[in-house]
Structures are given as structure tokens and as C-alpha cells.
């Protein structure tokens, strides 16, 4: 290639078309996915989770104390205890569920594990 001067257009064309690509790396994406750190909940999420658990546990404790004090177990108390349990379960499942989903997704990506060797 013989050129005395280079215009902006020529240089742009030269670089866009003639610069070599990086050597092929079939395992690049899986290496990246394997190194992705787990995402921690944002402060707002943490506060929401904490309030949810606190309110639910308080309600459950209050219900038990009331039953022991009065000896009466009403339908309203039962509904409250069930609601509190469901909320706690939902929060826990949400946190664990994200982790499980990540493991499943990683497993779906072929050869995502660090020690995987290229097939010959």
C-alpha cells in the first residue's frame, strides 16, 4: 500500500476494513458469564425486605400472644398468620430464587464452567 498522504475518509476506511479482527475465541462469552459477580440487593430493596419481615414477624408474634392470653383463635388471626407466613416465604423465595435462576441460566449456557475444556 503506497500512500503519500491520508485523508480522514481514507484513514477511516483503512481502519474499518483493514485492521485485523481478534483471533477467534469460542469460549469468550462463557468465560465472561463465569466471572460475573452476584448482584447484591439495592439499599431500597434491603429496606423493603427488612420492613416486610419485621411487620410479618411482629404480627405473627402478636397473634400467638393474643391466642395465649385470651384462649380464642379467630379466623382473622388465622388469616393474619397465613398472610405473614406467605410474605416471609415470598421474600425468602425471591432472594433464593434469584440465585437459583442464575445457576440455571449458567447451566443452560454450553460449557460455562471454568474448567470446561474445548471439544477437540
Amino acid at each position: 500500500m503506497k500512500k503519500e498522504t491520508l485523508s480522514d475518509k481514507q484513514l477511516s476506511r483503512l481502519l474499518k476494513h483493514d485492521l485485523p479482527p481478534a483471533p477467534q475465541s469460542h469460549w469468550f462469552t462463557r468465560k465472561v458469564l463465569n466471572r460475573l459477580p452476584g448482584r447484591t440487593p439495592s439499599p431500597i430493596e434491603r429496606i423493603a425486605y427488612a420492613i416486610g419481615i419485621l411487620v410479618s414477624v411482629s404480627h405473627a408474634v402478636w397473634s400467638v400472644v393474643e391466642v395465649m392470653r385470651t384462649g380464642v383463635f379467630t379466623v382473622g388471626m388465622l388469616a393474619g398468620v397465613i398472610a405473614a407466613s406467605v410474605i416471609i416465604m415470598a421474600i425468602v423465595c425471591n432472594i433464593i430464587g434469584i440465585r437459583l435462576a442464575r445457576v440455571d441460566d449458567a447451566a443452560d449456557y454450553p460449557g460455562v464452567y471454568a474448567d470446561a475444556q474445548p471439544r477437540s
Binding site: P21, A22, F28, T29, V32, L33, L36, G38, R39, I98, A101, R102, D105, A106, D108, Y109
Partner: peptide, 16 residues
């Protein structure tokens, strides 16, 4: 959703 598969597609589309 912390969806690594979706991110994997983004990596695939932009990596080269």
C-alpha cells in the same frame, strides 16, 4: 431478574 442468559446474548452481539 439478574438474568445472565440475557446478558450473555448482549455479550454475543457485541463481543467481536
Amino acid at each position: 431478574m439478574d438474568d445472565t442468559r440475557a446478558f450473555g446474548r448482549l455479550v454475543d452481539a457485541t463481543r467481536e
